[in-house]
Every structure is written in structure tokens, then in C-alpha cells.
Design a protein around this nucleic acid. Sequence first.
DNA 1: CCAAATCCGACCTTTTTGGTCGGAATTAGA
DNA 2: TCTAATTCCGACCAAAAAGGTCGGATTTGG
Lengths: 153, 153
Amino acid sequence: MLKLSKKADYGLIAVRHLAMRHLAGACSAKEIARTYAIPTELLAKILQKLVKKGLLVSQQGAEGGYALARDPATVTAFEVIKAIDGPLLITSCVTAHGDCSQAPTCTVKEPLGKVNEIIVKALNSVTISSLGDEGAEPPPSTSGLIQIGGAPQ
Amino acid sequence: MLKLSKKADYGLIAVRHLAMRHLAGACSAKEIARTYAIPTELLAKILQKLVKKGLLVSQQGAEGGYALARDPATVTAFEVIKAIDGPLLITSCVTAHGDCSQAPTCTVKEPLGKVNEIIVKALNSVTISSLGDEGAEPPPSTSGLIQIGGAPQ
DNA sequence: CCAAATCCGACCTTTTTGGTCGGAATTAGA
DNA sequence: TCTAATTCCGACCAAAAAGGTCGGATTTGG
Ligand code: FES
Ligand code: FES
């Protein structure tokens, strides 16, 4: 259905949270989970994935926790999503075994590939620090409301 | 995982096929299915969905089949996808009951909403007739510059 | 030593997706 | 009129993915 996974969403939220207190110490998974009402163990697993990909660093032991590995301005939403959900491929032909029976006759994967590129570019233009702005200052006037979903019927 | 469903892919292929023989007669689901090695009944159900949404017209009885309801140049990939998979919403918060527990504290759905708009625009810039010719004809408008993060304020 | 925390992998449940089946209604043509 | 071809429609099923949980090992600061 072309939607982001909840894990990726959680990861984005957590990374943004870490970015805001980047210069402070590390932050435990439990604390982040409680702040945003995310299942603790699930968030922990997501964060561990991000550690493995090198986006975060973890400090074990008491008073430990997670922290950003790089500057928030250099980390993009696409990196976080890719680390959690795997490579972003809009075309559904890419199963694990790569055996799309339609591949020889499929006529839409090429134009769709271009769309894929556009999405990646869009996601890459969103840095973690730019996510920070949104929440730090509560928007007093909701003038720029985003409306995309059309009336279905 | 942010990927298109196979049904949507099948639908795109079928619609494109119909577009190529737009001026010829109708085309049976079985014929299309065989051409592209798609399960017949599954394709039929997809086509029926498109009929219900008004993108296709169907002719019952012997020698019947499906045909495009409108000019191929006026139908976009986004319409086909939306008809099959429902409204395109990248944020995972939008379940059927709309009960995202993170909604009050979520800090990423707004910037992600902008990304969503970009995707919709990209999908809307791909018409069915442009799928028809594989001649690498890049859509001249709407796809040149992508800028989302830089809301200057 | 002990408590707090990450780490890690296995496991389960729910939801979504892809695919199938059988039969009713409709239509063109013999 | 009769029949074959075809759309139509809803229910059903199986596989996969997503979301979430658990228990234990390991590390670290006090
Ligand atoms: S369906 Fe796999 S190539 Fe398009
Ligand atoms: S997770 Fe639902 S609002 Fe972001």
C-alpha cells in the first residue's frame, strides 16, 4: 500500500529525540519509549539496528543509553528508513529470490523506477535536524495544512 | 516497507496494455493475463475494481472484455494505484480507525506529509500513455527540481 | 557484589497480501 | 432458442510480512 512501516516511524521519532539532546549525554531506550508511548522492547530492537548500521552509538551498563553517531544535520530520513526497513524499492518485483515472472514483459518497472528515484531524493532532502524544528516550536497557527487524501467516493 | 503492491503493478500493466489498443475493441481479462503471465482470476478482480472506480468500462457476454473509459493521456498512474490500493498515505499512523497513540507527541508526521505530497505529484506526472512508449521520454514538467526541506522562514 | 542498562536471538500474534474457487448474470452468435 | 464465452461477485484460503514479546547473557558504574 506504499506506506512507511511503523518501525521506521518509531526510528525517526527516536533519532529526532536523540538529535535534540545531542550534546547532552546518552539516553536510554526505556526513557525514549516512555516519552512517546512506544513499546520498549520494540524500540530497543529498532535502536540496536540503527547502532549496527552505524547511525547511533550505544553505551552499555548502568547510566548507559543511545546517542547519535554523527551530526544531526548530516543524517537524512532516508538513511534511517533504509537502516530499518531495508533498501527502498517501490517496484514489487524484488522478492528475496528476485524471480519476478513478469520481468521480461513488464512495461511499467522502468517509469516506476524513476518515481522511485524521486522518492529517494525527497527522503534524502529531509535531515534529522530539520525534523527537529517542527517539534521544538509548536506551530501556533495551522495555516499551512497539508491535505492529500482525496475523497474516495 | 514502502513498496508498491503487486496488485497495483498488475493493474498498471493491464491498463497500459488496454491503452495501446485503445481504439481497437475490448480485451478479455484472460487474454491480458496470459500475455503477461498474471493469474487470471486475480487480474479479473483488479480490473473489476478499476471498473468500479470508473477508469475502465466492461462489456459482458461473449466477445466482451475491458476497455479504457477515458483517454490514456488523461489517466495517471496515481489514479490506478489509488483505485487498487486505496489512498496513498506514507505515514503509518492512518489505520482504519485512526487511532495512532503517538499522534500528540509524534514529531515526524508533518515533514513526512510533505514527502507524501511529492510522491503523489510524481505519480501523477506519469500518465498511462507515457507508460506506453518506452522511449525514455522524461516528463518535462513537474519533475525537474525537488525541494522540500527548505521552507524559508 | 549488585543494580541498571544494552545486547541478542528466538518466539508469537495480528494484519496484509496474493491467490483461488464456484456460481450467477449477461451477451453474441450458431 | 440454445449455447458458449465472458464478466461479475463474494467468500474463502495460504503465505508472508509486520508488530510486538520474552528470557537470558553481558557489560558497566557505584
Ligand atoms: S511486475 Fe516485476 S517487473 Fe513489473
Ligand atoms: S506515528 Fe502516528 S503520528 Fe507519527
